[in-house]
Design a protein around this nucleic acid. Sequence first.
DNA 1: CTGGCTCCCTGAATGC
DNA 2: TGCATTCAGGGAGCCA
Length: 278
Amino acid sequence: MPELPEVETIRQRLIKGFEQSPSILNQRVRSCQLLWSGSLATPNPQTFLSFMPGQEILAVNRRAKFLYFSLSDAYLVVHLRMSGDLYLEKQTETAPYRNPDHDRFWMDFDSGWRLVFNDMRKFGRVWLLNDTSKLFSKLGPEPFDEKLTAEVFYGMLRERSRQLKPLLLDQHFIAGIGNIYSDEALHKAGLHPTRVSSSLNGDEAKKLLDSIRFVLSKGIDQKGASIDWVYRGGDFQNYFQVYQQEGNPCPRCGHPIEKIKVAQRGTHFCPVCQRRSS
DNA sequence: CTGGCTCCCTGAATGC
DNA sequence: TGCATTCAGGGAGCCA
């Protein structure tokens, strides 16, 4: 499930080229195909398909878990949600590691390369917009934003009284964190997932922010995590301390990792290293 | 403001 | 073996 590090990895690969694939920058769209119209959030398919040909990819950026492509005359925004992925491959070939039955959308470039949006569970969405500000307006800060200091983060935690786990998952609070990295960050910080945000002191807030940045950086360094049948290449899964480690010893103290439900989400933690009050 | 729940989806895992 | 049920998960939206 792509979170910030996975989305960032995809972005870097599209920009720099990956394996045999070239950079997507300056590629010109020749034609598009929408294989499942539900993937298109806006506009309607006819408008979308007639607009795209001739557009060039000028930039690829990321906001939270959204990827957005600056085109000649608009923005193409993609959210991968659970199972989405993007592949740049030759129009005549299908990469062996994906199932073409789950292709939802692609665009063919003049160069003979094709950008494929593949999404088994159909939760992912594509938007064609003149302006991204409305779509992004309610998102919380980027975790690596320099303006997000420990003091600011402490204030954000204090003005809410929510459990830490659902708060970290809330994209309006802070952007880009999903289930894997929230569990890893809370373990690194030694904080219980149900601890109430307003109960943290300044040191704990700083430790949590540092831990969020540490695990996200590590994830980016490892080119993301490859779990389930989704995504490929990254190996952050080999560095999980708690995520999907139920019953395995905590790397820090050796106590078995427990799995509970918090706000309907599977949550992994060490009951010794992450006590409810500390 | 907060939590709880549903919906959207598919396929792997589990149960009988 | 084969069928049915359960579960996972990001995010929007609804209700209490």
